[in-house]
Design a protein around this nucleic acid. Structure first.
Ligand code: MN
Ligand code: MN
Ligand code: MN
Ligand code: MN
Lengths: 216, 216
DNA sequence: AATTTTTGTTAGACTAATCTAACATTTTAG
DNA sequence: CTAAAATGTTAGATTAGTCTAACAAAAATT
């Protein structure tokens, strides 16, 4: 499989977990590649049995397409974890590099990184690392936004990996694993006043709270 | 620069250090790409000011071509060192992976690896790692083959990175840095009987001795 | 010096991945 | 239920990198 094909599969995989149905236009937007190009690549991947495609119908990954995508995402997330833990990168700096390294052709290479990291289950953003068969364990986290006053939760994952969001979380001194207590929710704009690790208080906008994923 | 262009520059760089003049045919053979393809790529790189090219004349890297090639080789060798020292690969397993990772677009990534390795000067095969400006420090090692009886030398580098050669050196229990004493040279076939680190004796064929680079 | 061999170049074709323009189908809205 | 808008497809062009076949120049041999 080429780097290009791998990126298409990965994008379709991600869109499929976020939306019920995925259109050619969705895929086109997510890759910033024009529709006719996507259309022909979809046909090609359909020919390889990775996407099931019928004209004018929503796009779907086949079983083997899902597995292939899962394996690429596995590599991506292992690499991100390695970059943070062993090369000292910030969680906002690793995506672009992982986007490239995920395409390296060497099973061994990724196996060794997995081993070096002691077989991590999540990446630096709290997203699950698919297993060696490309299977993803679905995480059932709640948005902090949906929590009520006085609730205590743990920060498990981020809902966005946008640079500006990750940097903001850093600035707020929030880290995965932190205990967050909801002190007060403004009725007007849903801004949340929270207590982090029993020590520092922060105000979080609704938009930020919507991208902080927590478990009880 | 594309991955392809980078590989052409690197190949030309290596051929230029091994031979006085480099022909289109040499480059073609070294890349296992047919001559007409090489011819057109050479013209393209000449257009970018990386190769100086005149019809029917030997190929040469320009100053900036040399620098560019040196920087890619730097990345390659840093990666090889990293793979051996931090991921536990054997020196015979790293070349193919480094051949891919050397093309990753991220200055920072290689800087961090350099730092993690504590700014190594040589790769796992004893080849010099070019500096941050792509400059290579030329190493003036001698072939063990050229040594005389009773001479004592240190194993500094290998003349070939072929898998079978590296595996043989492993099997002979030889490592970079070992002290080699020449005990006897067979007149008939130039086979060498050597003493390694004052402990183990080995017989080395002339072909092997020619690829063991040493300093006095 | 002439001929053969080797090396180099040009021309033209092919594949992967992209695009734009034109046309077709499906969905949405009036 | 039609007309407009959105989405999807086809056709044809483009670029990078590769190839084969044919031709040209340089080098080696006789
Ligand atoms: Mn990522
Ligand atoms: Mn990618
Ligand atoms: Mn190498
Ligand atoms: Mn390479």
């Amino acid at each position: 499989m080429t780097l290009t094909e791998e990126n298409y599969l990965k994008a379709l995989f991600h869109l499929s977990t976020e939306n019920e149905e995925v259109s050619v236009l969705d895929l086109s937007k997510s890759l910033t590649i024009k529709m006719p190009t996507v259309n022909s690549m979809v046909k090609k991947l359909s020919g390889k049995g990775l996407i099931s495609y019928e004209k004018y119908k929503p796009l779907m990954l086949t079983q083997s397409g899902k597995r292939a995508a899962g394996l690429i995402i596995r590599k991506h997330r292992l690499v991100e974890m390695f970059l943070v833990q062993h090369l000292g990168f910030g969680w906002d700096e690793v995506h672009e590099i992982a986007e490239q390294i995920e395409h390296i052709k060497s099973q061994r290479f990724f196996d060794r990184i997995d081993q070096l990291l002691d077989f991590p289950k999540v990446d630096p953003h709290g997203s699950p690392i698919p297993d060696i068969n490309g299977e993803v364990v679905f995480q059932n986290y709640k948005k902090l936004e949906e929590c009520v006053e006085n609730q205590m939760v743990m920060f498990m994952s981020v809902g966005s990996s946008q640079d500006s969001f990750l940097k903001l979380i850093d600035k707020l001194n929030l880290k995965l694993g932190d205990i967050i207590k909801v002190l007060e929710i403004q009725e007007f704009d849903k801004t949340m006043r929270v207590l982090v690790n029993e020590t520092s208080e922060q105000n979080l906008s609704q938009m930020v709270a919507a991208n902080i994923l927590v478990k009880t």
